[in-house]
Design a protein around this nucleic acid. Structure first.
Length: 567
RNA sequence: CGGGGCGUAGCUCAGUAUGGUUAGAGUACUUGCUUUGGGAGCAAGGGGCCGGAGGUUCGAGUCCUCUCGCCCCGACCA
């Protein structure tokens, strides 16, 4: 491609609402344009990058014998009613009626459709396993689209679904998909981490997220500094504490603690480490058709992890409650404790089980209990409720956990029979029994990956594409096209490189050197060959985008040198 | 869905408190000349329903009401 014939509208200024590097540079360099909130057009360069990512995905899926399909984007709402997800998805699901007044939805993910295409067609265990996938536009009417391609409403996702006759076979496929996803991200040139994730409302026995590491990531990850362990903060575990502060000595008694409501005040008042205090967090748990206030108790030094708390009571959601609501329930904010407590459902953190020498609220204004032995708690429910902190011990080794930010680009799930059972997608097993498929699902955000590459690979001048994602590997730039010998050499070089299967673009625009250099840097081609002044010495320069290095090379060596650099 | 902000040239934004020539700048675009290794210079041009509708007024980009859109914080997010 020649620049003079291409459509690459670069700009000096970013759209006013672009915050993230990927949004700024993908817009400025002419890869995408915004159409409306959360909707983007892919221009020629953006489309090329996306196709490269898709191609790698297809290759790796083929290596796993996964089968590509293409399901209709508009899907009948009945399937969603059958699975019960039409309510669960809520307003994110864009729905509309056709001319005959039939209800349809735009697919936000395709479990239902995919189940429906194998249902009643795959009828025997002999036809299993099966792994089918597609790369497809999805639509989710996000409450708040943001960050450019990172959280768009319309986006491209690879979604795959596998069907098995045993959990062992699902486990095998799950591991194979994890390995394939790792290969894809490695080939794309991304630094990433596979982390344990919250299985949440969807259930199943396991779920892992593939996270591209970048400061702008929306997810907080806890990763071990010495082993492979990593987990989303929503699911992260920690080892038992090794160093435990010295326990205060006190007999059990009620103590007057005037206006001491916070953990900090309480800890200071008694000169006791907050480890020995009990923090109460009251939230209203929201269920499908009811709500219930719940009090979560954790150690004062810990922080409640809301997703874990939500899962512990099987709720859809937790919402905060006001002090007046607590008062109406007969609770004393600031002085709540688990002892003699029958006004509210309680859940206690695992780490408080049988805890001794604790200080907790006495459920009476201005009074706390000290010297509490929590082993007196009867059949109260315990769960992991706590967010791991930086410095906590790794649950797998002796290392320490630290926080990092990640962009979720893949999520793989062991679904089991979550969809096949309600949708009655069944096969006959060896004993002739009708059994629902055991399923896995494997998603990867393709358009989000375009942004993720830039989040991880950019500088103040613009994009720095990795070799696998670059729209063109080499940019041959003629610094002054009026120099006929320069233009002639550059054109020949451009042709030769393309003949050598090196994707090359020729910058033959009638613009000045500085302008074209800035464009090359903004767009982020891995290599730019500058055909200009050095031609006097039969030389050209190769600018390496990533390092900024300028390599001077003889004109007859340039093809060979580029091949070496590309590797 | 709660709270806040913004809609004026392709893009980034002045102008709106206090209504009053023909609505501006930078950038981008067109033409010509010069320039040609870091987003060039000079000259001449084209480009606007001031988001939309209604109202107040002799007169509205500016004031009032209603709408639509976009963004930010939060809630939400396979």
């Amino acid at each position: 491609m020649r620049f003079s014939k291409a459509y690459i509208p670069t700009t000096k200024e970013a759209p006013k609402d672009a915050i993230l590097p990927s949004h700024i540079y993908l817009s400025r360099a002419g890869f995408v344009t915004q159409v409306a909130s959360g909707l983007y057009n892919f221009l020629p360069l953006g489309k090329r990058v996306m196709r490269k990512i898709e191609t790698i995905i297809h290759e790796e899926m083929a290596a796993c014998d996964a089968l590509e399909v293409d399901l209709s984007f508009v899907t009948p709402a009945e399937l969603w009613q059958e699975s019960g997800r039409i309510e669960k998805f809520g307003k994110e699901l864009l729905r509309f009626r056709d001319r005959k007044e039939n209800l349809f939805v735009l697919g936000p993910t395709h479990e239902e459709m995919m189940v429906s295409i194998v249902r009643n067609r795959v009828t025997s265990y002999k036809q299993l396993p099966l792994n089918v996938y597609q790369v497809k536009t999805k639509f989710r009417d996000e409450a708040r689209p943001r960050f450019g391609l990172m959280r768009a409403r319309e986006f491209v996702m690879k979604d795959g679904y596998s069907f098995h006759s045993s959990t062992e076979d699902l486990d095998r496929e799950f591991d194979a998909m994890e390995a394939a996803y790792k290969r894809i991200l490695t080939r794309l040139g991304l630094q990433f981490r596979v982390v344990e994730a919250d299985s949440g409302a969807i259930g199943g026995s396991g779920s892992k997220e593939l996270m591209v590491l970048a400061n702008s990531g929306e997810d907080t990850l806890a990763v071990c500094d010495s082993c492979e362990y990593g987990a989303n903060i929503e699911a992260a575990q920690r080892s038992k504490r090794i160093t435990i502060p010295e326990a205060p000595k006190a007999e059990f008694m009620k103590f007057k603690t005037p206006d001491i409501k916070s953990i900090e005040d309480l800890s200071a008042f008694f000169h006791v480490d907050s480890y020995y205090t009990l923090k109460a967090v009251v939230m209203r748990a929201v269920f499908a058709d009811s709500t219930q206030p719940v009090c979560f108790f954790i150690r004062g030094c810990d922080t409640l992890q809301e997703v874990k708390a939500c899962n512990s009571v099987g709720a859809i959601d937790l919402v905060e409650m006001s002090v007046s609501e607590l008062t109406d329930l007969g609770l004393v904010a600031g002085f709540m404790g688990p002892l003699d407590q029958d006004k509210i459902r309680i859940v206690m953190d695992n780490d408080t089980r049988n805890a001794k020498a604790m200080i907790c609220g006495a459920n009476e204004l201005d009074y706390h209990f000290v010297g509490v032995d929590l082993s007196v708690m009867g059949d109260v429910s315990y769960a992991d409720l706590v967010a791991v902190s930086e410095g906590d011990g790794c649950p797998r080794c002796s290392g320490k956990l630290e926080y990092t930010k990640g962009i979720e680009v893949g999520h793989i799930f062991k679904l089991g029979t979550t969809y096949s059972a309600p949708l009655k997608a069944e096969y006959l097993d060896e004993n002739g029994r009708s059994t629902p498929f055991i399923m896995g699902t494997y998603g990867m955000g393709v358009s989000r990956l375009v942004a993720a590459v830039i989040e991880q690979h950019h500088d103040e001048k613009g994009c720095i594409w990795t070799h696998a994602t670059a729209p063109y590997m080499v940019n041959v730039m003629v610094s002054n096209i009026k120099e006929e010998t320069h233009l002639e050499f550059a054109t020949t070089l451009y042709t030769t490189l393309n003949e050598n299967k090196i994707e090359t673009i020729l910058d033959d625009r009638k613009d000045r050197f500085g302008f074209k250099m800035s464009d090359a840097e903004l767009i982020g081609f891995p290599f730019t060959v500058i055909v200009g002044k050095e031609m006097e010495n039969d030389q050209v320069q190769i600018m390496v985008r990533k390092s900024g290095e300028m390599i001077t090379v003889a004109t007859h060596d340039v093809v060979q040198k580029l091949k070496e650099l590309i590797g």
